[in-house]
Simulated assay, not measured.
Amino acid sequence: MDDIGTTSSHKKGKPRSFWNHREKVFLITTMKDFRASFYNECEKKILSAFLGTDLRASPHIDSKIKMLRKQYNTLQDMLNISGFGWDGEQKMVLVDSDDVWQNYVRDRATGELAENPTDAVAAMEKEDANATTEEGEQSPVE
Rank of each mutant, 00 (worst) to 15 (best):
M67D: 04
Y72A: 13
T74Q: 15
S82P: 03
L68Q: 12
L51Q: 11
A57T: 02
I46E: 02
D62F: 06
L79Q: 07
L79A: 08
M67H: 05
N40A: 08
T53P: 04
S63D: 14
M78Y: 08
K66N: 10
S37A: 07
S48T: 11
Q76Y: 14
N80E: 15
L47I: 08
T53M: 09
Q71A: 15
K64G: 09
A49E: 09
H60L: 06
I46P: 01
P59H: 09
L47K: 11
A49K: 10
L47N: 10
S58H: 12
A49S: 14
F38D: 00
E41N: 08
C42E: 05
I81S: 07
T53G: 07
I81G: 04
P59S: 09
S63I: 03
R69E: 15
Y39V: 00
N40P: 00
S37W: 04
I46F: 05
N73P: 05
D54A: 06
R35M: 07
I61H: 01
T53I: 05
E43R: 01
D62I: 02
K45Q: 13
A49N: 11
R35T: 10
Y39C: 02
L51D: 13
N80F: 07
Y72M: 14
P59Y: 03
E41D: 12
F38W: 02
G52T: 06
G83N: 05
C42Y: 02
D77W: 07
N80P: 04
S58L: 08
L68I: 14
E43W: 03
R69H: 12
E41C: 02
I81Y: 02
I46A: 07
K64A: 14
Q76L: 15
D77E: 13
A49V: 02
N40G: 02
G52A: 08
D77S: 14
K66E: 07
I65A: 05
G52W: 05
K44H: 06
R69W: 09
F50P: 00
L55C: 12
L55I: 15
I65G: 02
N73L: 15
D54M: 04
Y72R: 14
F38V: 01
A57I: 01
I61F: 05
C42D: 01
L79D: 10
L79Y: 06
L79R: 13
Q71V: 11
F50Q: 08
Q71H: 12
K66V: 09
L51A: 13
S58A: 07
Y39K: 07
N73V: 10
Q76W: 08
D77R: 12
S37E: 12
M78Q: 13
I61V: 10
R56H: 06
F50D: 00
I46M: 07
L47E: 11
S48G: 05
Q76F: 10
I46R: 03
R56Y: 01
K44Q: 11
E41Q: 11
D54G: 13
Y72P: 00
S48N: 08
F84V: 06
I46D: 01
I81M: 07
S48L: 10
S82N: 13
I81P: 00
K64T: 10
K45D: 10
S58E: 11
A36P: 00
